[in-house]
Design a protein around this nucleic acid. Structure first.
Lengths: 341, 341
DNA sequence: TTTTATGATGTAAACGTTTACAATTGTGTT
DNA sequence: AACACAATTGTAAACGTTTACATCATAAAA
């Protein structure tokens, strides 16, 4: 790196002390107007900009926020990141992004690395392999506030940003029921995730409310990836016992299921209707277009960033609040009744 | 932030000087084995980890790399980012990600911000509004190496990571020709981009080689977004003069075109075949599945990161090299000949 | 035993800032 | 002209490291 102009250079150039230069640049009151102008001019002339690293050291603040996400393949997390960046950069924070690749071990490594980088706070959506509870607690005890979003944990007392997964799972299921579907299955998410439980419960409660039959086959634990949805649907189709609708834990599962159906010449929604969750752009592009729950990605990111900044500024908040944002069930072709039900 | 354990704490704890502690931790030779062990134990006991900010100041290196991308909505850039991260984090660099939102002005702001953060290098894919040439030059003169990828510039002499856009546009067009399509249009990208020209030239040359007719209607400047592809196709369909295939600058354009075709009940590929470029996951999910050129996203990111590190380590490289990675034309349903051509 | 070389440790400056405190200058009052 | 006081500026320490140089102790060589 080329040597930057420093405050010392300006001081030497003007034959004054560094303190005065510092004060002039910081717009402190006790500097003579003429001196301030001289300094400001010199700064411009010498192309001065402050050395942020020195500032960080002096203030003992890294102005770094860490982020841990499971993956970057779908556009969900990148869009959340955009929201986070928006808030953080205008608050003069930088973001360090890490990926856990859905692994609990890598997540732990990421968190440790973030602590070593002296981040002032961490935003995290946990891996599908479950929760590094002790580590979360340790970090918080070490004074690093954590904020969870999307995939949260109930095990530690920290602020969270979520949508009402229960409610929208309930609504999605009810939507299928209202459209005349009777034998409805649920492709559930990974065991360890809190949102898996919530969406499952929403499904079950909606089914109960409308007195629909729930057998031990109705709920199948599938996972998060498209391939899993594909395999699960293949397996279902191999039996004689076929549902007329499936509510899926997420969009990749639904898309995988759809792929399997196409291969087996099962039409959607005529033979099996599908509903996804947490939609991406793809939902509107597949044929049939996929009914799904849209999450307010940008807002989620912004809320999480605001929460983490709030935590940094007021470290001893007693009741970390959970922000529950509104989502939206987008009804499309994949869940339309075929009319004759 | 809670106060971290420092080297001073260890020194005080053991009643030795900070210099010795520093040397012991850095594994320098001239430290007595017993002292070294004492230090190492104390470090572990006091949960010491080095203050990276102080290190940066002392070494006068930020260990920061800046990234400027046009957007994060499609999964292309996030996947490239994953590749960049992979290389950078194992080389102990951090990445600052910025988005230009396809705006030349915002791109300039991003770059300026990155310089203020003392980044040691910058990786960039330029906005569709064109190039901040003077700024690129200024940054490089200021000792900050630039590495371009995907959307590169010919105006400055810097390392680049690309695929052979010309070649793959040529191949894609030829593929359409071999499949019997005759009246082939090209939906071109934004005017200011270098890859627009290359892909266009590939198209033109393939058409010429096979003596296909090129009129002034054959090439339509469309843009980068799906909506543009949609609008362009709508306009084409409104005329009497309909092509039997369209080679699109990118996937969003092709997907937009497809949407327009579906609305007008024009079947793909029977009535109009489509080929995209720079595919994302979506290509395999739409109906019909979309023929497109797959870019090696992870490798692009890794190559760019390696180049920028190389530039940092050997600042006066005379001939910055361009890395041209291999791509892959994935032939799918949207470009199959209907047989009767 | 004295000298010399070597190994181990300590001292202090430097990186670029901010800021408490001290010192200087300037202004207005008597 | 002398004083008080405010306004302005300077000095130096601090943030957590590394490292050139100085110092000290110890072992080997004389």
């Amino acid at each position: 790196m080329k040597r930057q102009t420093t405050i010392k250079d300006i001081a030497k150039y003007l034959n004054i002390s560094v303190a005065t230069v510092s004060r002039a640049l910081a717009n402190l009151p006790n500097v003579k107007a003429t001196t301030r102008n001289k300094v400001l001019n010199a700064a411009k002339q010498l192309n001065y900009h402050p050395n942020l690293i020195a500032l960080k050291l002096q203030k003992n603040r890294s102005r770094l926020i860490g982020l841990v996400v499971p993956e970057l393949r779908t556009s969900f997390f990148p869009l959340v990141i955009a929201g986070i960046q928006k808030v953080l950069s205008s608050a003069n924070y930088q973001l360090i992004i890490t990926q856990s690749d859905e692994s609990k071990t890598i997540e732990a490594q990421n968190l440790q690395m973030l602590e070593n980088h002296n981040v002032e706070g961490i935003i995290i959506s946990i891996s599908r392999e479950g929760e590094n509870k002790e580590l979360y607690t340790k970090l918080m005890q070490n004074g690093i506030p954590l904020v969870f979003f999307n995939r949260v944990t109930t095990l530690v007392n920290a602020p969270k940003v979520i949508i009402d997964d229960y409610k929208f799972a309930f609504l999605a299921t009810e939507h299928l029921i209202y459209n005349g579907f009777k034998k409805i299955y649920h492709f559930a998410g990974p065991k360890n995730l809190c949102i898996t439980e919530k969406r499952k419960k929403g499904f079950i409660d909606a089914m109960h409310k409308h007195h629909k039959e729930l057998t031990d086959k109705s709920i199948i634990t599938v996972g998060v990836l498209m391939e899993k949805g594909y395999a699960a649907m293949k397996q279902v189709l191999a039996t004689q016992d076929i549902p007329d609708a499936v509510f899926c834990f997420n969009d990749p599962l639904a898309l995988g299921a759809l792929k399997a159906m196409k291969e087996e010449d099962i039409r959607c929604p005529e033979q099996i209707a599908l509903v996804g969750f947490s939609e991406t752009e793809i939902a509107q592009l597949v044929t049939p277009t996929l009914t799904s729950v849209a999450q307010p990605t940008l807002e989620i990111g912004m809320a999480a960033a605001n929460l983490v900044i709030e935590q940094i500024n007021t470290p001893d908040t007693l009741n970390p609040h959970t922000i529950c944002l509104n989502a939206c069930l987008n009804i499309r072709d994949s869940s339309q009744s075929s009319g004759n039900k």
